[in-house]
Structure formats: C-alpha cells, structure tokens
Design a protein around this nucleic acid. Structure first.
Lengths: 214, 214
DNA sequence: AATATATGACTGACTGGTCAGTCATTATAT
DNA sequence: ATATAATGACTGACCAGTCAGTCATATATT
C-alpha cells in the first residue's frame, strides 16, 4: 500500500517518503521485538506488518541488529531533551520541579509506547552491552543530572534539609522504575494504582527531605 | 570429568547422584542463558560446560524450555522462605526488621548468583509470561506480604505515623530493584555505592514514616 | 503529444548455515 | 549376562541475508 499518487509539490519529496517508510518499518519492528524478543523476532513478520517485502528492510538498515539499534536511537533521544527544557525553564521550587518531572513521567513515559522501549532495552541489554551504553548516555545520565540539579537547588535554597537526593538521585526515580516493570509484568496478575503510588512516594520523600535534621 | 569411582556406601546413592548431575546441568544452563539469552543459548554449550553430552540433558529435562523453568523453580523458592522465618521470628521494632530485611537483601541477593536469576527472569518474562507468573507467586507476592506485615506492625505500635508502606510496600524495595538493575547494566559504566544508597534510602524512609503527621 | 529509454525502489524465491531434539550405539553398573 | 545410563552423529525445520528480476515513474527523443 501507500503508493502515493499525489502530484508531488516539491521536487525533493523523496526524503520524506523515505523517512516515513523507515518509520513504518521501525514501528513494526518494535511490535514484533516486544512480542517475540530480538532473537525470536522474524524479519518476514516485521516486513509483513510494515507492508513491505523482507528485502526492502535491507534498503533501510544493513542488518537485523542495526534495525534494533536504529529503533532504539530513534525513540529515546527526544523526550529527555524536551523535559530538560521544560523543567529547567521553570521558575519554581525544587518540589514543584520534581512534581513536574513526575507528572511528565506519568504522561509521557508510563502509559505510552516509550515504556515498551524501556522494557525492550531491559530485556536485550544483557546480550547487547552497546544498548545499555547508548541508553545510559542518552537517557540515564541526563536524567540523573537533571534530578541532581533540582536537588541541589533545593538544598541551596534551604528548601531541603537533606542532600540525600544530591548524593543518590536514583532514589527519587526508583519507584518510577518499579512502576514501569510492575505494569509491564504483573499488572494483569496483581494490579497497582501507579498514580497513587507515585504520589505517595513524592509525599514521603518531601517529608523526609524537608523534615528537621535528625 | 566427574566420573565418580568411589565405593558408594549406601545402596540408594542413586537419587543423590541424579540430583547432583541435574544441579550441574542447571548451573551450566544459568551461565549460558545469562550470557546469551534463552534463545541464543546452545544446548551443546550447556552440555559442554556441565561436562555431559547433549543427549544427557534430555534424560533430566524434556525440552530446552523445561530446562529454563526447572532452573527458575529450583533457584527462587528457598531464600524467601528463609527470610520469612528469620524476620518474622524476631522480637524487634519495625525499623529493625526492615533493616534486617535489607541486610539480608544485600548479603543474600545482591552480590550472589541469585541476582542473576532475577536478571534472567526480567529478560525472558516478556516472552514467557509463565515465568513472570511463577516469580510473582513465589517471590513477589510473598515479599510484599512480608513488608506489609512489618509496616502494619509499625503503624499498630505507633512507631510509624504513616501507613504509606502498608498501602504501597513496593516503595520500600524500589531502590533495591534499582540497585539490582543498575549493577547488572551500568556498574561498569557508572558505578554506584549500593550499600550507601540503600542506607540512605532507609534513613530517608524512616524519617518520613516516623515524622509528625503533616 | 506521443513514444522510447533509463532508473532504482521494491520484491520474494533461494541458499548456506544453524541447532533442538532423536536414537542407534557404546560404556558402565549390578 | 542383563539392565541402565550416557553418548554424539544425524536430521529436518528454520531463517538471516542475497540478488536477479519487475515495474512504476522520470527523463529524453521525435
């Protein structure tokens, strides 16, 4: 399908078409990789879902592994940049920035396709260290940096009495990670109210950070 | 190797031998599964590492998938039972029980082979829902029950002013999960001091739970 | 405007290699 | 001598990647 017959306005409409087709292949690949895992995913099936022939995939990526890497790269870069801009621009208390971050996390990661990307990375990172490396560089280290910055602001302004999150920003998002994995694996068996859990975490953490020094 | 030629004392030494050989096959399978992932793991390689021929594996398990399930089952049952006994028997404050739990977690899970089992389950659970189910039933739900019990004791005795952990026991172990994944995937790239992080988490959580009602 | 030629994106049958599982044979134990 | 356990060569199904051929569209020619 998708045999465009429109009178193409611009001469270089080509590149757009190309990108769109690559995207449809990546979308299909994500579905199949998630369902079967990388090794058990069949390129014939990816091709069928994308509505192209198998050979066509090789016009866009040089190998199955490159398909995976391209897929990961194309999906993870964006949102972190967006949120960095969004949060850092705010004139707000550290608490409000953290709340903003969590709200973004809920809306833009959990409950979207991006959560599946993370799941895919977790599943395949053991086998492909390069994936872990890419993800750490593009997402994790930037996320930690963002969190640490917020925590430092909180400490500097006197809003937080503890520097725990400056030292271990991981503690702030740990429940987010748990929520991600829980929904991916156990939500059908033993559902939890993610929103309420994260709200409870924020409240606890704020109480601990703002409380008097012990 | 391992061609035992000792004069076997007992007549029914058989079953022991059988179990020992199965165990050596399972040990080998865990190594290979972790290194390659389930699908890319080669039974020839498992056999070689276990010091048996491939056919021998089929005298102990009926299929490759059964090998994975047997492996998981044989490794996860134990420690939760042990810790339930250990912690519940204590006459101690809720805080001390939590500290005991974390100390156990550090010593008996993180830093042992069992952490690899969890990693294996995370990697394969997407493809084999049965694995997620087994793990939830045998470990997760029991762990949550244990945590909730401790939290309830804390609330009932007045030690904790918040019921947050009763409602979401997940929040208490979320940093443990993060530590597990971080060490598995990022420890070489960006190491963290797991012990210090978990200690910080406990301190924060205690302050929040024990602090005055807001 | 009509026709001829060139292009290259796309196709899918095919190949070469791989591996889970089998089973006839061999080794060991009783 | 019989029974039991272990072996590893073999097989049949499977699939990533290839490539000769197709055809819709673009360009050149008359």
């Amino acid at each position: 399908m998708t045999k465009q017959r429109m009178p193409r306005s611009a001469p270089a409409r080509k590149e757009e078409d190309r990108q769109a087709k690559l995207q449809s292949i990546l979308d299909a690949a994500l579905d199949i990789f998630l369902e079967k895992g990388f090794t058990d995913a069949r390129l014939d099936e990816v091709a069928a879902r994308a509505g192209v022939a198998k050979g066509t995939i090789y016009l866009y990526v040089p190998s199955k592994q490159a398909l995976l890497e391209t897929l990961i790269r194309s999906e993870i870069g964006g949102p972190i940049g967006v949120i960095e801009q969004h949060i850092l621009a705010l004139e707000a208390s550290a608490e409000d920035k953290l709340r903003g971050l969590f709200s973004f996390l809920r809306k833009e990661i959990l409950g979207t396709r991006r959560v599946d990307i993370v799941r895919l990375i977790l599943a395949e990172a053991g086998r492909f260290p390069k994936l872990a490396e890419i993800y750490h560089r593009e997402v994790i280290s930037r996320g930690m940096h963002l969190l640490r910055g917020i925590a430092e602001q909180g400490v500097a302004s006197g809003e937080f009495h503890s520097d725990a999150i400056v030292r271990f920003p991981q503690l702030a998002i740990a429940p987010g990670l748990l929520a991600l994995l829980w929904t991916a694996f156990f939500q059908t068996i033993d559902p939890i109210d993610v929103e309420a859990m994260l709200e409870t975490h924020l409240a606890l953490m704020m109480k601990a950070l703002k409380g008097p020094l012990s």
